[in-house]
Design a protein around this nucleic acid. Structure first.
Lengths: 137, 137
DNA sequence: GATACTATATGTCTATTACATATATAAGAC
DNA sequence: GTCTTATATATGTAATAGACATATAGTATC
């Protein structure tokens, strides 16, 4: 065995608690999915993403940078829209390549989902034994 | 509208296809879960993780570094085991703080699962309409 | 002694994300 | 007029996860 090393994680220097890093990499497929539904500008995408209760607000910096990267990679294309009142908006439209990319991503995400399912099955099996059923939500 | 920008992503410089980055951040909770089941050394954890068909092989570098970080943060503690034939193994054991952390992570992962569920519901609604049901696996 | 398996570890690079901050337009309040 | 607020896009910086390469060393087998 070994001696437990008691460090305060909630304090200044250690690992933050609860886990903040967590899962990464779903912002991109989500943006492509929203754009596959209809063309939109960044601010609108931000609001549409924010509507899902389980999705934390997307950082605007990340969102706009991601869209620009998408455009550089040919997954989306953009044009300015000055018709509405307010600042000009850059409206993004998904390309065929973007759709392909989204589909490829869906396959990947489905696998991740299975891993998470498996995680919860083992997690609950260990900590809740037979008492509690696997809760789907 | 806008002009589609055809770039070859499969070639040298663009975004790789299919998406490689994908979702990140489940290695850590998985390791803690495995260690909550029983103490183990790195190599064994690597093999146990590799048994899941949906989980790609974990990079040893990442695994060992993660374990050491865990120990620094007090989530696990370790001791050398020289009993078996072969090189000495560093056996890790989860601490109470590690268990707490795992529970906090489970909450977080459950939310992620909901986001992925929602993603697939919208994805399938858009690309497969009513033809196909939401396939759970 | 050469090879293979076990086992741990570091170096480096990229991608994703968080957080802070800067900029500008337009609408409404006062 | 100017102050505030909402809309809209953008950059700078830092932390972290992960991929990939590589190093090191003990043990076993041929």
């Amino acid at each position: 065995m070994c001696k437990e090393n008691h460090v305060d994680h909630r304090g200044g220097e250690g690992r933050f608690f609860p886990p903040g890093g967590g899962i990464r990499g779903i912002v991109q497929p989500w943006l492509l999915l929203l754009l596959s539904q209809k063309p939109a500008h960044g601010y609108e995408l931000m609001e549409r993403l924010g509507q899902d209760e389980n999705t934390p607000d997307v950082d605007p910096g990340l969102l706009y940078r991601t869209l620009r990267q998408f455009e550089q990679d040919g997954l989306v294309c953009s044009s300015w829209d000055t018709s509405g009142g307010g600042p000009a908006r850059r409206v993004y439209q998904i390309t065929d390549e973007g759709i392909d990319y989204l589909h490829a991503w869906a396959v990947k995400i489905r696998r991740i989902r299975k891993r998470l399912d498996r995680f919860f099955i083992e997690y609950q099996a260990h900590f809740y034994k037979e008492e509690d059923e696997f809760q789907h939500d």
